[in-house]
Measured scan of single mutants.
Amino acid sequence: MPVRRGHVAPQNTFLDTIIRKFEGQSRKFIIANARVENCAVIYCNDGFCELCGYSRAEVMQRPCTCDFLHGPRTQRRAAAQIAQALLGAEERKVEIAFYRKDGSCFLCLVDVVPVKNEDGAVIMFILNFEVVMEKDMVGSPAHDTNHRGPPTSWLAPGRAKTFRLKLPALLALTARESSVRSGGAGGAGAPGAVVVDVDLTPAAPSSESLALDEVTAMDNHVAGLGPAEERRALVGPGSPPRSAPGQLPSPRAHSLNPDASGSSCSLARTRSRESCASVRRASSADDIEAMRAGVLPPPPRHASTGAMHPLRSGLLNSTSDSDLVRYRTISKIPQITLNFVDLKGDPFLASPTSDREIIAPKIKERTHNVTEKVTQVLSLGADVLPEYKLQAPRIHRWTILHYSPFKAVWDWLILLLVIYTAVFTPYSAAFLLKETEEGPPATECGYACQPLAVVDLIVDIMFIVDILINFRTTYVNANEEVVSHPGRIAVHYFKGWFLIDMVAAIPFDLLI
């Protein structure tokens, strides 16, 4: 008679799926529990143990900040960024110097990925580790590398530091407007667009060049630039800015003055950032001319202004700041037409079709709590990747769950009947059967004279019903998954307890 339990259901295979997918890609990662103190490590794979030199037993239950890997060259700011990422709910990448158990130093890129439950609360953290440099290539500990984003994938490793954006290309926007319009339909740009040429040739750093990471940081200074100062900065030398009595002219307006920039070969870094931020506020060169004239017309309804409409929906549905990093990277690809469009465009503009998908598509409701890094690593669709929660398995109709209350009560009843059979069957065979043979035949009273025979008949009927119930009862397979398919249940029961239950259900007393 089957006594099969499996009270692990309803099970959740999400954690096993993450481990299996990460292991298949030869990654070095740990999984931490966000619900406990210090976000203790609950799993670390073999790749991480080989990377740091510690065994799994030495890593388990330690804080996922990996303070046991810190050393003299470990930056405090990087460690603080990892700790801050564990307090938030967004994906974050941090470069930090770690030390192995043998004392060797290596520069590592740590990717902190939160995993949320159905309520939107962070319950786990996945920390992925990628070695960037070994100890002989690690720089000085005073050099802070965590304020910069990861290198873009479309640049060669040897040319990542030679990417320079020439400031004269930004200063000569109005001069290039006529050349853009003359391109017409034969050019790649839309009317009114501004073409910015980027020099990728390796050259020595000069005062006129600005690194790509500095251009990325310009967006942080746009908020500090007032509207009046932006307007004066875009007017140009024809209309000098008016300053109040006793007030000095704005240095932001002076930063885009061609006369002032041409007199000296070098520009201050602050002026460069502010000038680029001011130019980015204009949607095209037409807006710059309109600002000089004193009238700013409404933005025209053409394809170039609607190019950012799908980007707005993608940004609203993005799951991490990696989408913004990807957008900034692609927006700086050289030799393309940049349409400086305000994100607050007309909502009635139709979304044009684009061959290049900048932001990841909208994630469906079932995966809105899973970050983009987890979705990318697992390579699963929205119909396959579940949320991290207890999910009731989908069972067929008329199927009994093996952990249901009805099955528990039924098993206790069958257990009592088995005990009765084990006690009274030998007793009936030894004593009652002998008395029946010696006594007179009682054929007239039937079952009324033999109450134990009636009980034995009921017990046999219950055993037959138990066999039928076992054909529709779920079970737990070797992978700790609840199986509810009727065919698989029948095959599993035939290979197991079916023969024993059938022999126990045969009414031998009635056959004798």
Rank of each mutant, 00 (worst) to 15 (best):
N257V: 14
A175H: 05
P114D: 01
S178Q: 11
I288A: 14
A277I: 15
V196L: 09
H70T: 07
T305Q: 11
F14Q: 12
V110L: 11
G71I: 01
K166P: 05
L248A: 05
L155D: 14
V122Y: 03
A285T: 12
V113C: 12
K373Y: 05
V113E: 10
M137F: 15
R326S: 12
N317S: 07
P227C: 01
S272Q: 07
C39F: 07
D346Y: 05
F22P: 02
P258G: 14
V41D: 01
H368R: 12
K116R: 13
A156F: 15
P114L: 01
P157Y: 01
I42H: 01
P310G: 09
A121K: 14
V194P: 01
E90N: 08
F22W: 13
L225W: 15
A290T: 15
I82T: 01
P249T: 14
G314Y: 08
D46I: 03
R356N: 11
E118H: 11
A260D: 15
K344S: 05
V138N: 06
I330G: 10
N33W: 03
F29Y: 12
G184I: 14
E134A: 08
T375M: 04
S55K: 13
A57P: 09
Q81E: 13
N257C: 15
V94Q: 06
D144K: 07
A156S: 12
F129N: 01
V377A: 05
I126C: 09
F14H: 15
L127C: 06
T375D: 03
L324V: 14
T145C: 05
V384M: 11
T13S: 08
T13N: 09
R242H: 10
R100V: 01
G224R: 14
R4N: 14
S331Q: 07
P157K: 15
R326Y: 08
D342H: 05
A204K: 15
D259T: 14
S26M: 07
A97Q: 15
E365F: 09
V370T: 06
K332S: 13
S379H: 11
K332T: 08
G294L: 12
P300D: 14
N117D: 06
L349Q: 05
L127D: 01
A79W: 01
P361E: 07
T162V: 07
V180F: 15
A40K: 08
A223V: 08
G262C: 04
N257I: 07
L171F: 15
